[in-house]
Design a protein around this nucleic acid. Sequence first.
DNA 1: GACTTTTGACTGACTGGTTAGTAAGTTAGG
DNA 2: CCTAACTTACTAACCAGTCAGTCAAAAGTC
Lengths: 205, 205
Amino acid sequence: MADLPERTSSDPNVEIMRATYRALRESGYADLTIKRIAEEYGKSTAAIHYHYDTKDDLLVAFLDYILERFVETIHEVETTDPERRLDLLLDQLLVAPADHHDLLIAVLEMRGQTPYNEAFADRFQRNDEYVRYMLRTVIDHGISEGVFTDVDAEHATRALILSSMGDALEPSFWTRRIRSPQPDRRQRSTFPSFSELRQTRSAGS
Amino acid sequence: MADLPERTSSDPNVEIMRATYRALRESGYADLTIKRIAEEYGKSTAAIHYHYDTKDDLLVAFLDYILERFVETIHEVETTDPERRLDLLLDQLLVAPADHHDLLIAVLEMRGQTPYNEAFADRFQRNDEYVRYMLRTVIDHGISEGVFTDVDAEHATRALILSSMGDALEPSFWTRRIRSPQPDRRQRSTFPSFSELRQTRSAGS
DNA sequence: GACTTTTGACTGACTGGTTAGTAAGTTAGG
DNA sequence: CCTAACTTACTAACCAGTCAGTCAAAAGTC
């Protein structure tokens, strides 16, 4: 999950995606309105409707935009050493989201809409399948090289599932914003890193 | 997380709580309206406002209602054998929520609102603290009896955190409703049970 | 025990504000 | 002068919440 770069893009679509992100971050999904997005965009609500016919179109486009960046980020892992490749991949999946707390909240809120929005569900399912595939590939490669044992696969898959949740497992995650506006963001999650999990597993087998 | 019993209660407040639950389950938090709740209640919207001044009052009352039942349920664990007591407690925290899929979704959606609703945040924080306290007490008791080693405490706390999430870690959890309306609900979660976790841990130490 | 009064639980009609979305006209750049 | 990117002004639907009045049953009162 990369930051949102190109701070001064002249592409209205990208500007709207950024505005949507800010509005979602500040209002939450339940209170997200076209008006709020338009305010962040600095234009009228009709300007939003000029680019996206319906609110749902906009939201689906936004989800695509975010997940595209997510996939790009984990695709950047380019190493041949299986062990290092897995560690880097899992860092992207588990550690990176913790550094983008607000974005993670936004994505989790949209994920929470999947029971009521089929388009969202499709996107998340495809994304989950892709991430799963990536992990399986990396692990299979490691197994064929004799670096991993095959029990790791199951374990890693479990860790992958956590990626979509990350710090959400920490109760303080949800309350952080209201309790103390923007505190020490650099504080690391207390959730076990993948290397910890791997140690436990190999000790057990 | 108990079922909602007393199917025919004449207490309007309880009826409204149940109606709110059904409305929340079917509409999701973002689309939850007084009108929807009133429809489930079978009365007018003004009838809702007669019992609860504002929508927020109603929602906070609903959250209290749900969390109260949750606490009651885990309080029912009454055994002196530390090991069995911990297992039963963790079953309530980890396994029971999986049996109440819809309720869990509803609670998770409300938890997702905590960054924007201080009253919700308060309730969840108190609840988390209570659950944490319960677990710590049970574990400390087990340690003083010499049944547990103290490393279990950290491990159990981690499992507790999962309690608030449960099956949410399964991607299919979110998509289940849309994909196949009400499929095999009895299918057990694939997430490791606490006993599995404990076996791994003791094998490692 | 008949009567009045009070109270709890509503209904139906309404209000003011907000929502997503539209339609017609404007403006600046290539 | 054409088109992309808007704006202003609008609409219909919907939202939470209000208000005046209904109605049955409980509580006093004589």
